[in-house]
Design a protein around this nucleic acid. Structure first.
Lengths: 228, 228
DNA sequence: CAGGGATGTTACGGCTCTGTGACACCGATT
DNA sequence: AATCGGTGTCACAGAGCCGTAACATCCCTG
């Protein structure tokens, strides 16, 4: 599921340029030419990041950014301000208002994309260290420990990460590739069948408390952790 | 009493930007435009953190950082290096010399503030002198004594600090690096494997009362002190 | 019910990580 | 100088873990 970027920019040429680069980088893109449109898009489907022009036909980008900061739903939405003004003053004002970063026109697409990636990475829901519990199965990231109904379970490192990943998205079918990406990391070259083996090892590890039944096989699809 | 941050930066625009954000975050701020001024301020009123530019008119920020590391009074003063250079080389040099973190220009203020907060949090003294007790194992900081179920145990200085650190965060996996930082202090360059050796020595020291089993190994993760 | 693809299960060679004992260095004390 | 406790590093061996292959089973399809 790629991140969605909303571009708010009235100059078609710039909007197109940014959009193209974002798509090329694998992001899903939406474009608005005015704050009015932008607001609709934000309401309808919350994007993961907004590239916001400073000067817009109906309202200043700064006002829109300020507006976003007031709503709980959009408070933490990263905003990258795009501006023709290079005055130090504006930078300060833009950042004070709640932009997370800014780029002045003319900008290098390379730099823009680097900033976008940086913002997205920073905003990414850091795998919280809060304990997770599903159907009596408890996983404590900080302690690196798994217990079923109170009894401690011995789980290997990879199985631990696998279980954590599954527990973070219960009831959702995960393809082998998704598991490889999420547990092993993208860009690793590992046989998909290896996932099967680790799933088995995980099941064995969970057996003492009967929680092995939580890990379900979806034939032709992948694996899923039952919520209850 | 808010924490005081000293900003050492010769470019007025940047100094102002950083200063503004720091004040906005509730910190007390002092600004120096050269190392000479900075030295005075540090002597007069020790700040809680220094944001230090790499290039300064009278002396390189790196030299100043190195200087700070030599004085007992400023040894543990967190330094956040601010640099236009992004070369990997400089990064390494900066950290070697004793910067605790660095941010390259241009930076996003949000990130800068996040790092500042992180550094301040990490530097916060939390070493209470209250005795700690975990699972029958008692450690008295003031008396520099460790006892298990009443019987006194002979524990070396480093092992004592190690145990104290572990006991302050029971049930939590500590990486070797975290232990190095917490027990030996940041800025030391010691092999991670050395931690293993001291853990062993600690276990041997705790053996007489069987509390050695409290110190658990988390393969690939570090060490953890069992709470019970 | 036969065929074939998908998954479960087991075994194994290779590799990484950790436990452990030895050793040299250093500063303080004698 | 000699001794001694404490410390950091190293080398070696054993334990644990990993990815893969190979074989066994299961399950859908026709």
């Amino acid at each position: 599921m790629p991140a969605t970027i909303l571009i708010v920019e009235d100059e078609p040429a710039i909007a197109e340029l940014v959009s193209l680069h974002c798509k090329h980088a694998g992001y899903s893109v939406k474009v608005a030419h005015a704050v009015l449109d932008a607001r609709d898009i934000v309401d309808e489907a919350l994007p993961d990041l907004i590239v916001l022009d400073w000067m817009l036909p109906d309202k200043s980008g700064i006002d829109f950014a300020r507006e976003l900061r007031k709503d709980d739903r959009t408070r933490d939405l990263p905003v990258l301000m795009l501006t023709a003004r290079a005055a130090e003053d504006d930078k300060v004002r833009g950042l004070e208002v709640g932009a997370d970063d800014y780029v002045t026109k003319p900008f290098s697409p390379k730099e823009l994309m680097a900033r976008i990636k940086a913002l997205l990475r920073r905003a990414a829901p850091e795998s919280s260290d809060e304990p997770v519990e599903v159907a009596g199965l408890r996983l404590e990231p900080a302690a690196h420990r798994v217990s079923g109904n109170g009894a401690e379970l011995k789980v290997g490192p990879t199985e631990f990460r696998l279980l954590r990943f599954l527990m973070s998205r219960p009831d959702r079918v995960m393809t082998r590739q998704a598991l490889l990406d999420g547990v092993w990391g993208d860009h690793v070259f590992i046989e998909e069948r290896t996932v099967d083996v680790h799933v088995r090892r995980l099941r064995v590890a969970l057996e003492p408390t009967g929680h092995d039944a939580l890990v379900e096989t979806v034939r032709g699809g992948g694996y899923r952790l039952r919520k209850r």
